[in-house]
Structures are given as C-alpha cells and as structure tokens.
Design a protein around this nucleic acid. Sequence first.
DNA 1: CTGGTGATC
DNA 2: GATCACCAG
Length: 269
Amino acid sequence: MNKRTLYYVVAILIVLGVYGYERFLSEEEKSEVVEEGKATKSDTNEYFLPTSTTNQIVHHEGYSLSYNEKHEQAEWVAYELKKAHLSSVNHKRPYFEIDKAIKTGAASWRNYKNSGYDRGHLCPAGDRRFSKDAHDETFLTSNISPQEHQFNSGIWNTLEQKVRYWARKYDGVFVVTGGVLKGHMKTIGTEEVSVPNQFYKVLIDNNTGKTKMIAFLMPHKDSRKPLYDFVVSVDEIEKLTGIDFFPELEDSLENKLEASSSYKDWSFN
DNA sequence: CTGGTGATC
DNA sequence: GATCACCAG
C-alpha cells in the first residue's frame, strides 16, 4: 500500500469513527434523557440548580426544569449559556412535542392553538443553536409558557438577546427563567394552562473571577422602557416564587449577592 | 431574533 | 398530521 492510499484509508476510518461516536451519543440521549428524564447533568448545572417547590425536577441534555403540574408549565428552566454555545447556524423549526419526561403529563401544545398567546420559549431556541438536537429539544411543551406576542417579540426578546450578549462578553452565564405562578391567572386550553402575570430571569456569572448576579422581573406586557428598569434583587424573586435560586453558593456570598439590585457589574451597552 | 396561520396532500 | 408559503413585531 502506498502512502497516498494509507492516508485515504486513515481518513475514512476517522470519519466512520466520529459518525459511530455521534450515533452512540444520540442513542444514549434517547434512552436516558428524552424518555426517562434521568439525572444526567453537568457539575456546573447541578451546582446552580434552584430548589423545586413542586418536587418534580427533570433534566434534559441542554437544560433542566422544575414542572408545576397545576399550572401546566415549568416554574423554572435552568441552563448554562456558554460562549461556545453561541452559533449563527439556522435550524428549521420543528413541531412542539409533549415532554414525555414529565411524569404527571406535560401540557399539550393544543392548549395554545387559537388561544391568542404565543408558545413562548423559556429556554430560547436561539440559545441552543449549536446543534440540531439541542435546538429541537427546546421545542418540548415543558419549556413553554403562554406569552403575549407583543411581549415575547418585544421586551422579552430584547432581554434574551442581551443575555446572549453577556454570554459572549463574560464567557458564559448561567440562566434561570420562568413565569411567576402565583395569584389569579387567566388560563388557556382544556388543560387550563396558566398565563403568568409576570416573568423573571435570573443570571449568575461565576467564571470571570468575581461572582456576579442580576435578576429581572417583568410584567407580562410589552414595554419600551430600558431593560435596567426591570432589575430587582434575587431575594425579591425568591419571595414572590418561593424558589431558592442558588442554595449551594457559600451562604455569606449568596446572601450578599441575592440582596443586591445593583446592575453596575453588567454592561448594558 | 420572537412567533402565527392557511392551503395542500 | 406533516409541509410549505406567507405573514407580523
């Protein structure tokens, strides 16, 4: 065998090897995560996971969530948005699927049909564009909440884009998002999916040396106010939702950061 | 980017 | 039900 042929054979073997490995990974994902919702998560993910008020945490490949059966949606969705996750690859939008990992039964997408409300992503599809699987995984019904289109495509979208900006600038952020599932709420569909009156987003950056947090609380309506007008302390969101956001942080650091509603460490430019 | 709807097979 | 074309903020 001459040298040229040898290189050719080696190249083929590498391609087949990578293909086989990806197949292996996708099989593993199917059996463990999508169907069973078992606890496969990164250490970072585990460290920053909030508490669940409903005792139903489900882990997917690209995000974890706590499902509230009564309100037929997640009380929080949490994921790490790494700088390396940011991608300009476009994927075709899939159909929403009922999340089989929710043991009490996740809401059907039919509840949203002709409801007048968007199927608003909690973990945005735009944050999971680095692979088709990660992107498609955001189209599970456990990852959506009814949102007014003007809100979703307006100030909420602006906030989501700002999060991507911060992920790029600060080399990744950890994100927790949800609707405030309290008080009187409108419902949609036969399963009575609650329409939150407020949405929140909590961010922590623990990888640029100094740990920093920022939290947003927004009324469920579009606004032309600047984003920083919606900054609140993490404590305020914990008080509203009953969720403890970063229980595994060292207590004195947690107390100090969660009490602050300062946004001086976060660039709004 | 964030989304929806109507026609078609 | 799946797809494609077309629509809006």
